[in-house]
Design a protein around this nucleic acid. Sequence first.
DNA 1: GTCTATATTAAGATAGAC
DNA 2: GTCTATCTTAATATAGAC
Lengths: 187, 187
Amino acid sequence: MALATITDAEFLARCTEVFRTYGFEGATISRISAATGLEKGSLYHRFPGGKEEMALAVAAGVVEWFKTNVFDVLKQAGPPQKRLRAASEQLRSFYAEGTKSCILDLLSIPSGGPELAAGLKGALQAWQKAFAEISQESGYGPGEARRRAEDAIMRMEGSLVLSRVLNDSKLFHRALDELGSTLLQPA
Amino acid sequence: MALATITDAEFLARCTEVFRTYGFEGATISRISAATGLEKGSLYHRFPGGKEEMALAVAAGVVEWFKTNVFDVLKQAGPPQKRLRAASEQLRSFYAEGTKSCILDLLSIPSGGPELAAGLKGALQAWQKAFAEISQESGYGPGEARRRAEDAIMRMEGSLVLSRVLNDSKLFHRALDELGSTLLQPA
DNA sequence: GTCTATATTAAGATAGAC
DNA sequence: GTCTATCTTAATATAGAC
């Protein structure tokens, strides 16, 4: 049989799916091996630090993805409504129409070390900042914009939990569709 | 050394803490043993079905608690605002001021069997129904009341995730404090 | 860089004494 | 009803061949 071959990017993507589906404790080396097609020995070659290092790489990868596909999109040219809609569609895709969970939710369950916890916290704060900026740009004051950004993410995260429990992504789509009215001041 | 002794209620309470802190996969028999003071053999005496049965008991216990301390409180006599405030304080206590996670969140991560998943879904629907009822009672139509109930729970769940990630329960308290304006029509 | 093989530890679960 | 002891399987991780 030919040796398994997989790019770093594809590896990280599949790894991310395992962590966001099963959480840190449930993301076993066996599951990661099955998902990536790499044997255990190869996994530890790529990540000598084991599972903890894999989770850190996953978290860093997601942060990078958000920077490129959400935060930067929010800063593009054009009216805030349009930019937010573009970012919303990226989020819809990232969460696979509400069928996949948030890494912030699943990886924040106690198990990973303090470095992972700090990374998640930083990622969430960056998200809050990005949402607060476009909210403020639409006309709200700094405090109100911040409050609205927190509210928007709260609704996103909650909708993902409820969509998972109910096995129905209706509420995820609602939360996404209402991002505009939550974040932006009517023109 | 004297034999360990613990009431069923106390046992279930400690068991619940383990599951809601670590999730299904992270709630190991060893952790449950440590938390309850019972050795593994004793755990399997009480729950021949093992971890799955323990998780089911935990879920059933939480549903029972919600019925008594939240749903029934919402149906007491008096103005809706007052009843909702009373229920809110029960929720504040259940989530320990936002420092503890929701069982719906942690136990809905794939791992438990279909019976557990069905139980969680039923519990969530009961919660939605209880919130929708008091919302409708305050004057909203059935559809709007249902929408507001979903919104309220979405915010609660999201706030708990964010509070956990940020290690700051500010958003949990906000979500709770805004339950009235989310659910009830102004008088 | 991937593989097989293996070591070590922990997890889930059971048997049977007390 | 709880305990100790044990079993089996799986999980994390490492060594070394290819």
